[in-house]
Structure formats: structure tokens, C-alpha cells
Design a binder for these strands. Structure first.
Lengths: 228, 228
DNA sequence: CGTCTATTTGAGTTAGCTCAACCGTCGTGG
DNA sequence: CCACGACGGTTGAGCTAACTCAAATAGACG
């Protein structure tokens, strides 16, 4: 039922992020590129910019002092990262793959939506949708088994970026096993074992470690909703 | 470091919810009471109302088809529940104790903030702060041990509703062990065992199952940050 | 070709779960 | 007034899903 677990909690369907800043794009933003591994911002930095992913994937995460990490989201093209309720970022943000991003100055942005109730309204819907998606992820982190988590994760990617070919739907998995583990609250070994299990059960194929082809989507859905 | 885990993701300090609807209060809202156990709304219901808790505690939660439940938040006085990005509620909401609530008609509310950029701005800060708090809870659900979860939970309640007396700080625990378990992604037995462990270690006292007195707050903080 | 890193696989351990018993409180009804 | 059942909480015993530690494998890259 609550299979949907967001890649990024900002990817609300009712809002088209490409339009969000459309009119402001020329004057108040610029487009930038970054290689995989590049850090966009760190927790505690001044939140001067808001980023819209245009190509590639970025990751937001938090780290405990002892090194434990929680990945909060994978942001795909159309997603926005770097929003904050105060002047500081509250997570780290790094490029998972080579990325192209649009960078907005936050001041300019703030100025614009104060004068624009329509934009404000859109943004509110965006934020509340993000909250709703995060709540689904709570269920995932708090109450689902390893198989359910991995299956749910693959289903979200499939819906979001899957390319249909013949009877399979395929997509890239640009993030590492470690990223997936820290997103789902598991270990890399459990991710790896679970993926192999899905492969051996003919639910998915893994042409290489960073590419997934789903051959039995109903099987995957069944696993996502209740592990056997 | 990231001990803070929100009771309710709407309890952002920078916004004073009492002021949020202040001017609209007389015409667009009314005050209502409900007994413990009363359901304010269910997932999927039309989201016609927004609720502000005035007294008591309400709980928002989601349930999987097989009965597994995740408690999303405990909303204390000053907190707001029932916000939605579309026309439906996305969680269940019930009174944990006897509550007094202010009920806002959503239509009226929507109408008001479209015309009120200041309110919209406040509300945006509120929503993004909620997101930030939820991200902390992700760390809790995904990466913390049982002891760390319980200790963190108690610390949040202590900060929020603790009454200082002598060298102790005490507060009520109006929700059931089951509620706490479903909030922290644990079982009632683990909650119970962990609380008794804290009691035996002289970190807390439990005058009765629904009342906590923290006698060693530094010990509790240490446990919240890294379990031994 | 050697080194480095990411992933997979194996083996043993354990934190937290399940199942079950027990206890105390409270409300109901004889 | 007491007996009784229901319910929430606690405690015990054993189990298991996921973890830890360790080793093997496979690419990527100089």
C-alpha cells in the first residue's frame, strides 16, 4: 500500500519545479556543472543558494559524530535541494554522478516569492508534498524489513527513471551500495545480499552492479508490500 | 550531536503557531474538545480542517495493510496537524489524552494566505523547519540503537514539557508504550526493557508508567549520542 | 602488471524480535 | 464488598534478521 518511498522529498508531482523559478531564471540564477563526488554544500554552511538538479543525481545526508550516516534523499533532475528554514543548511549535499545544476541565490529567490503569492502557494504545496513523502519514508525506515526496503527502493527508481524495453524495465543505479545502505538504514552487505537474492529469484537482472533490469515487476511489488 | 528528534515536525521554534492564525481566529475557527482516543481524522479523508493543539497531545500515524503502524508525530500544545498538499489527509490523527483544539476551515485558511504574503512566508518557514526536524528523525529511525532512540525521545520531551524540581526534571508520558514503540520503530517489550534499564542505572525514575523523572540528564545525553 | 576500491560471499554474533507468562490497576457485575 | 475479566505494562526465554568481521572477486587505473 505505502510502497512509494521518495527518492527525494522535493519531487512532488503537483508542482513542476522547472516552472518554479522560470521567470527568474535569466537574472537570478546560473547553470553550473560538477563531477561525481563534488560537494555542493555542508551542514552548517550559510544557506546562500538553492539548487535545482538538471542532469545527474545528488545526495543529501547527515552524519553523526561517530561516523554513522543517514542519506536523506537522492535528488534527480527536476528536484530541488538546499532549501532551509533559517540561514544554514541542515544536511550535506554531494554529487553522486556528474551533474548539471541551476544555482539560485537565495536572497533573490526570497525577494521574489514575497512579491509573488502564486509562487509562494506553489512552494507551499511543494513543501507539504515533501513532508508527505517523508512520512512514507518513515514507514520504510521504521517498520519495513530489508527485502521490503530494497524492493520499495527499486520500485521508486523504476517509476522515476525506468526505461521500458521488451518485457523488462531498466535503470541505472548511480549511487554506491553504501549510499543505498545509508538511505535505507541497512548495511552494504545486506544490500548486496538482498540484490543477489532478487536476482536469483528472477525478479531482477544485474547486467553490472550499477544497472538494474526488473523482469518481474509484480513479484517486486509483492516483496515491497510484505516480505515473505 | 543530532540528539534532537522532534515530537512533532511542526513545532518549529522560529514560528509562533499561536500567532499564525491570530487575526483569523474569531471568524474562521472554533475551539473544540475531545476525549482520549477520539479520532480527529483518518488517512484519505477530505482535508477540510487544520487543527492547532491547545491542550493535551494528539498522535499522527500511518498503518500498513498488514497492521504495522508508524507513529509520525506527537503534537503538543502549539503544534499544528492536518496540513496537506492536496485535498486529502495523508495520515490518521487521534487524541492521545483529552485535548482542546482549535479547528480551522481549510478553505478559509487557504483564502487568507493567498492574500497575505507575510502569513505565507511564516508558513513556509514552518514547513521547511518541519522538514528539517523530520530529517533528524530519519537519523533516529535509520541509524540509532534502541537505547539511543529511547534516550533521545526522553530528552526531547524533557526539553519540551519538563518541569524542573530540585535536581530532577519530570514530565508526563501520556502515550502508551505501543505508541512510543511505533514512533521509534521498536516493540513495546524493547521500550519497556529499555526504560527499566535506564531506571536501574539511576538515569531516570518512573513514579508510575506514565511519568518520568530524569535524575541524570548528562547520563541520558551520553546514552542518546552513543549507546555504550 | 600491481594497486586500489567497490562489491560479493561466507561464517559467526547479537540486538531486538516473538512468544509466553505474569503482574497490577481498573471497571463491572453479582 | 469482592470476584472477575480486560487491558497495559513488565519480565523471561529463545529465535532470527540483520550485523560484524573476514576473505574472495572483479573492475578501474596508472
Amino acid at each position: 500500500m505505502y510502497v512509494t518511498s521518495p527518492l527525494n522529498y522535493l519531487n512532488a508531482e503537483p508542482v513542476n519545479p522547472a516552472n518554479l523559478f522560470a521567470e527568474a531564471a535569466d537574472t537570478r540564477s546560473h547553470i553550473s556543472s560538477a563531477d561525481a563526488g563534488h560537494t555542493l554544500f555542508c551542514e552548517g554552511d550559510d544557506a546562500d543558494f538553492v539548487y535545482e538538479v538538471l542532469e545527474g543525481v545528488v545526495r543529501t545526508s547527515k552524519v553523526l559524530c561517530d561516523g554513522r550516516r543517514q542519506v536523506l534523499s537522492f535528488a534527480y533532475p527536476g528536484d530541488i535541494v538546499g532549501l532551509s528554514h533559517d540561514q544554514f543548511y541542515h544536511s550535506d549535499c554531494d554529487a553522486v554522478s556528474a551533474v548539471k545544476i541551476r544555482v539560485y541565490r537565495k536572497n533573490a529567490y526570497n525577494a521574489s516569492y514575497r512579491d509573488d503569492p502564486g509562487l509562494c502557494d506553489q512552494f507551499l504545496r511543494y513543501a507539504t508534498a515533501e513532508v508527505s513523502n517523508m512520512q512514507d519514508h518513515f514507514m520504510m525506515l521504521g517498520r519495513k524489513s530489508a527485502v521490503e526496503k530494497v524492493a520499495s527502493f527499486l520500485l521508486v527508481l523504476l517509476d522515476r527513471v525506468g526505461e521500458k524495453r521488451n518485457c523488462q524495465t531498466c535503470f541505472d543505479l548511480p549511487m554506491s551500495r553504501s549510499d543505498i545502505a545509508d538511505f535505507l538504514g541497512l548495511t552494504i552487505e545486506t544490500i548486496s545480499r538482498t540484490l543477489t537474492r532478487l536476482r536469483k529469484d528472477n525478479i531482477i537482472e544485474l547486467p553490472d552492479p550499477h544497472r538494474v533490469c526488473v523482469c518481474n515487476i509484480n513479484g517486486l511489488r509483492a516483496l515491497a508490500e510484505s516480505a515473505d
